[in-house]
Amino acid sequence: MTLALDLLTIVGVSAGCFFFVAGTVGLLRFPDALTRMHALTKADNLGLGLIVLGLLPQAAGLGHALKLVAIWLLAQVSAAVASQLIAGAVLRQRSAIWP
């Protein structure tokens, strides 16, 4: 049972790290703000989500597990709002240049 839980952790955290690396590569390689943000949201959303999922079996109790999920949810909210704000700023800037 412990082995299965540890395996779940290894798979979850590794997959999460993969999405973080992929998101970072996208951030560095993609041509403009909107596509770069598209790459970053994958890291924030899937990457952190998978890492939290992988860490859940290692939590000391229900309280710890809920805290981990709360961290993921808060990061989700902040990422969603921040990307909306940045996208809004990009659109305003574009319409200022090409009205």
Binding site: V77, V81, G88
Partner: peptide, 17 residues
């Protein structure tokens, strides 16, 4: 600063936490 509905949403949601 410019008013933005997303920011308003965050300002109504996050303070409780």
């Amino acid at each position: 600063t410019c008013p933005d509905s997303t920011l308003t949403f965050l300002a109504q949601l996050l303070p409780s936490v």
